[in-house]
Every structure is written in structure tokens, then in C-alpha cells.
Design a protein around this nucleic acid. Sequence first.
DNA 1: TGTAATATGGAATTGATATTTCATCAGAGC
DNA 2: GCTCTGATGAAATATCAATTCCATATTACA
Lengths: 283, 283
Amino acid sequence: MSDVETINAPRDFDSLRAAILERRDSLPKRIAQVAAYALDNPDDIAFGTAASIATLAGVQPSTLVRFAQQLGFDGFTAMQGVFRERLRERTSSYDERLSTLRAKADAGAGHRAVFDGFVTAASTSLADIARSIDEAHLEQAVDLLAGAGTVYILAKRRSYPVASYLAYALGKLKIRSQLIESAGGLNAEMIGFATPKDAAIAISFSPYASATVDEARAIARQGVPVVAITDSAFSPLAQVATVWFEVAEADFGGFRSLSATMALAMAIAVSVAEKRRLLGGKR
Amino acid sequence: MSDVETINAPRDFDSLRAAILERRDSLPKRIAQVAAYALDNPDDIAFGTAASIATLAGVQPSTLVRFAQQLGFDGFTAMQGVFRERLRERTSSYDERLSTLRAKADAGAGHRAVFDGFVTAASTSLADIARSIDEAHLEQAVDLLAGAGTVYILAKRRSYPVASYLAYALGKLKIRSQLIESAGGLNAEMIGFATPKDAAIAISFSPYASATVDEARAIARQGVPVVAITDSAFSPLAQVATVWFEVAEADFGGFRSLSATMALAMAIAVSVAEKRRLLGGKR
DNA sequence: TGTAATATGGAATTGATATTTCATCAGAGC
DNA sequence: GCTCTGATGAAATATCAATTCCATATTACA
């Protein structure tokens, strides 16, 4: 007869919520109890087992299954899937936006889609770093650089734009810095001048430019403290660094956003300048 | 002897992360593979089953268990609990974070506030440009550049990082380009080679670097079409440009964000490459 | 008040999943 | 070059959890 029910199971949390509220009054006592608990503690449902949830809600596991079935699901597991989806969507809305944009751009949806893709990639990266930045590391890095004589900046290729802006900013802020840029022959000599009283900032992302890695290793071996900005704990830079930051830049069309890295680099530069001003004297 | 290990299983994600990083170098290959995957895709671990995660990470389920045990957990399930805990603690979404950031960026103090300021400036700029970009101009600029022989890139000082990334991207995309960078003496000669079959991208913001303006004027006088990215209709670049974009970058602590300009520049580069691919032939 | 329909609790079952075990393999140390 | 130790893969196993079933209780209705 009314086996039609099987098809209209809610696909997302909002419609599930709506479905529950709609039937609220027509639900049997125990089922209603589950419904109330589900809306109040959606996170518990996402992770718990049927048994554990049942205990918390004060019902039997079988009631949970019945509840799910009343809503049109196959069983408890299917319903739980919706609760889990909700949890991961809360964190990945940007990622989804990005992937649809990618699909659009691939389908040839025009230049606007490409542009939106880069904007979204940059926004994602910024939101990401805003959440994940480690304040203690920031303090450490600033302290370290504030006490340095010369700040050596190491970056090649993809990361080079950040380095050049950093060099520009440090110059404006009257902080002595040395940008190690070209693949030309003088780099080794330049690095040779660095002492433990100096400091270095190295920036590199996978695939790590070998020159940057080599130079960072060399400079670290001379006892120069290194602040690294890289993309993974497994980066070779992380291993030689005194302090390192993990920055996950979203990419689009094969090009990584630099927004998060830029923001971090600039924050470090300005903070170092501020710190030096506070410490006074040293001119 | 070292059976003490059993007790020190990390209780939260941060210490788990720390534990992984600490042992990074001493881990066997497959286990390290799991470690890398776990740190890169923590969400997957929270939700998946041992089998599904193992497939994604390219290992056997047993390796997952071994990994968990190495970290001091009883088994995979216990470790997964930590990943789940992390997910339920992370409450708000990206957008919420950014807007609260914006609210308190000016209120706070310390280095974190500086960092937040830069992130806010960047995301504001991005939001602005996403709203105000002129699609017709975008089309025009892409058409113009897609038909060009060599793309000359003009930018100095503050805008130079964008130019260098643009040059990098164009190179990767196999679009011939020439970056006019140094204040050195050769620029005039370089520009002298440009013909009306080429094109130029000029980037400059107030206060406009005089070299960029002069060069843009010179190249335009030779009949070379110029795409300009600048900040006002009164900009000298707007006057010599064939197409120009207005980009209003927010600044913080005296330094302008480059995020919006970057996104626009990259979108142009990729769109040009796409257009050329569509036009085919031309190799 | 009696009867039927539905709801509920509890246990058995079925299915899936983590874990363990064992055989094989790679590499370090002698 | 050989042996031993530790790592790895694959499959068997034990565990655990969802589901189903059945007996019982509750409610609705006549």
C-alpha cells in the first residue's frame, strides 16, 4: 500500500529537520522522544552507535531504527549518514563551491567562472589560515626575527612573489633584509655571510624548489635560526626550521593562491617592526 | 621496560598531531604514509571505516591499526575517537569565522591582531572585487592578450609581486611574456622591441611608480595595446590603457593587500591560455 | 469492557568491521 | 653474503553493532 514512503527520505539535514517537525504531533511517545533528542543533540547522533544513542535518549535501539524508518530511511545507518554529512558540510562549504567552480570552468563556462575560482580559492585559503594559525608559533617567530641582525629571505618560483613583497615591506619598515632570489651563482656567498645573530625566512611549497631547500639547510647548518612557511609537516623545510608555519593554500587551475601566505608574511613583518619599536634603542 | 607507552595516548588532536610530528622520521614507510594522510585528511578519518580509509590512503587496514598502536592507542577505534572529537569541537563555519574576525580585528592587541588585520584586509578586498568586476572588460582583456605575440608586464615596487607571479604563471602556461622589472637601464630597449602585435599588462596603484607610468606611456605610444590594473579612473594608467580594471585593495598597517589583484591577474592568465587553446592552431 | 491495532521492550540474528595472526619480504648488522 | 629483526600484505577471526523478530503492553474504538 503506502510503500511509497521509502523514496522520500530527506537528503540533507534541513529537510530532515523539517520532516521531523511536521510529524511531531503524530508521532508515538517513544519515537517523539527520539525525535526531540535528535534535534537537540545532532552531533551525538552523527558519531554514536545505535546502542549508545539509545541509552542517552532513554529508549531501545530498535526504537531508533523505527524512527529512521518512519522518516523514510532504510534504517538507522542511512539516517545517521545525513547527520554526518551535516557535520562535514559545516567545514567544507568553500571546498564545495570551489569544486563546482572548477567543474564549470572545465566545462568552458566563461572567464567569469575562472575569475570566481581564483577569488574563492583565495578566500578559502584565508579562512583556513585564520582558523589554524598557531599564536605561540607566531610569537616565537616574531621574537626570533626581532632580535636578528639581517633577515635573509629564501624563496623561489611559485613562492617568490611573497618573498619579494616581504622584502619590500621589510625595507619600508627599516628592517635590514637580504632577498636570496636568482638561481645565479652568488647565493652561496650571500648565505655564507649569515651568522647565528641573523635569521632567515624560508618559503616553499610542494614540490619544494630544491634550491630553497638546499639554501635553508645550509643556512641552518651555520646556526642561523630559520622561520619556515610551508605546506606540510613533512616538508623538508619543516625539518630544518626553528619555527614553522603550515599554510594550506587552495589552488585553482593549477595555480596556488598566495593570499594566506602573503597575509602571514606581512603580519610577521609588521609585528617584528612593532616589537623592535617596543624594545626601543636598537637603531 | 618501555611498556609505559600504553598510557600516553594523545587525548586531543593537537597532541596527537604533535606526537606524529615528533616521530615523523622514525616511522616505517607505510606507517609514515598513513601519518601523512591522517594529517592531510583528518575529516576522512573521523567518518570513514578502517577499510575505506585504508583504501584512500593506499594501505592495508592492518597498517592503520599498527599506526594507531604506535601512537599509544589501543587500536584504530580509539584513535578515530580523537579525530571525531576534533570535529565536534570545531563549531562555526568559515564564513562565521571571517565575520567575527572582522568584528574584532581592530579591537584586539598583540601579534594575533596584526595577523587578523591582514587576513581581514585580504578577504575584504576579495569580496569587493568579486562584486565589482566588469565581465565585459574581462572578455576584452582576454581577447586582446590572447591575440598578442609577446605579453610585456610592467610593475614596480608594491605591485611587483603580482607581476612576478603573473610572469611565472604565463611561463607555465606557455605564453611568451617579458617582465620589465628592474629600474636598471635596459627597460627602454626592451620596450622598444614591442610592436602593435604584442600587448602589455601594466599594474600600478597610487602613488603610481613613475617608471611604470612612463613605460606604459611609451609602450602605448608604439601602438601596443595595454591592459591596466589600477585603483582609480584618474590613474595615469587608465588614461593610456586600452582596457583597464579598477581594483580597490584594502590596506592594513600601511600595506595594501594584493589578494584581489592577484586573483584578477591569475584569472586573466588562465583565461588567455584557455582562449588560445580554443583558437587552436597557433603554436 | 472487550477486542483489535499499534507501540514498545528485549533478545536473537545477521551483517559488517576492527583486530589478530601468519606468511612473506626488505633491510640492517655482522 | 648470511642471518636476524622488523615491516608489510592478506586472510582468518573475534568483536561489535544494526537490524529483525517476537512477546508483551498500551491505547483506541466499538
